[in-house]
């Protein structure tokens, strides 16, 4: 067995793992607070990546589908600034979605909530295709991605971009933990996610807290989309596939555990690269299979996922 090649494959897989983890984290944040899976998470993230793209390229009528070019600031933004803009935009979109579409439904059935997010998925996806076209677009990377831009570790190349993505993911995660553990808003958020009715009784304003949760999640999604847009090329459906993996990652780790999302993303990313490489009858086009099989198996053994809390049913 070629250990350098194995190491190389692991390093390559790490990049995707980070993307899956961050989108899975977005799903987990929303699931924890509202008990809802946001099927439109990927499309909302893609939308913000397009926003970043428009910010980057400045006013070009070709990109904006005409008419609205005047609304976009005149100066092309630098990449970090554009991504920051996209994240802020994503947070606004997330908060608006919660306020306009989710909260009015109240405690509706699971099916109704799934319908809303699926409707949002379809609408966002096709409106993006309508506005920006379906052709893939080149999205610059925030990290150097040239030929020599990597560390050499034991003969395998670890790209700067992989290290960078993980650095961003981990630092954002640290910020998130600090926010949840050490601020009043974080305390309120944790209280609401454990029991909305009790939180309300002790004076937490549930509605706005949930809105912040959605904003936070969509910000995460935006970050994931902007970081991955360079490698998968920017197009309206780019996050659809990523979303399936992120679902698998979140389920694997436990839908209500941020730690689980991180580990789940890692497992899915690694298995997606390693299993097709070492198991002969699974080709790369089937790379989605092991991830999903892993998800189903985990659900059967531990329906709550690796790190999730067990649900207890009261009659």
């Amino acid at each position: 067995m070629d250990y350098v090649l194995l190491l190389q494959r692991i390093f390559d897989a790490l990049f995707n793992s980070a993307i899956y983890s961050s989108l899975a984290l977005a799903l987990v944040i929303i699931f924890r607070s509202t008990g809802l899976l946001n099927f439109a998470q990927g499309e909302m993230a893609t939308f913000t990546a397009y926003i970043a793209f428009v910010l980057l390229s400045g006013p070009q009528p070709r990109l904006t589908g005409g008419g609205l070019a005047g609304l976009i600031p005149g100066v092309p933004f630098s990449i970090p600034l554009a991504i920051a803009g996209a994240v802020i935009c994503g947070m606004l979109v997330g908060a608006a979605t919660e306020r306009a579409l989710i909260r009015p439904l109240g405690g509706a059935s699971d099916l109704a909530l799934v319908n809303i997010t699926i409707g949002l998925l379809l609408a966002t996806n096709s409106l993006m295709a309508q506005w920006w076209g379906t052709g893939p677009r080149f999205f610059p990377s925030i990290f150097p991605t040239g030929a020599g831009q990597h560390f050499m570790i034991l003969g395998a190349r670890l790209r700067y971009s992989t290290v960078g993505v993980w650095a961003i993911l981990l630092s954002v995660l640290v910020l998130l933990v600090l926010l949840l553990r050490h601020t009043r808003a974080g305390l309120a958020f944790r209280a609401v996610s454990i029991s909305p009715s009790n939180a309300e009784l002790v004076g937490v304003r549930v509605g706005p807290t949930l809105m912040y949760g959605w904003a936070l999640a969509s910000g995460f999604g935006a970050l994931a989309a902007c970081l991955s847009a360079n490698s998968v090329l920017l197009e309206p459906s780019m996050m659809l596939r990523v979303l399936v993996y992120a679902f698998a990652a979140a389920t694997l780790g436990g839908l209500d555990s941020p730690k689980g999302a991180l580990v789940g993303g890692l497992i899915i990313g690694l298995s997606q690269t390693l299993i097709p490489a070492y198991v002969p009858f699974i080709g790369f086009e089937l790379s989605v299979l092991p991830a999903l099989v892993a998800m189903v198996v985990i659900l059967l053994i531990r329906p709550a996922g690796l790190f999730g809390t067990k649900r207890i049913e009261r009659v």
């Binding site: 579409l101 319908n115 699926i118 409707g119 379809l122 609408a123 966002t124 096709s126 409106l127």
Partner: peptide, 8 residues
């Protein structure tokens, strides 16, 4: 998009 809207 129309389908999505109708669904919502």
């Amino acid at each position: 998009a129309i389908f999505g809207l109708i669904l919502i």
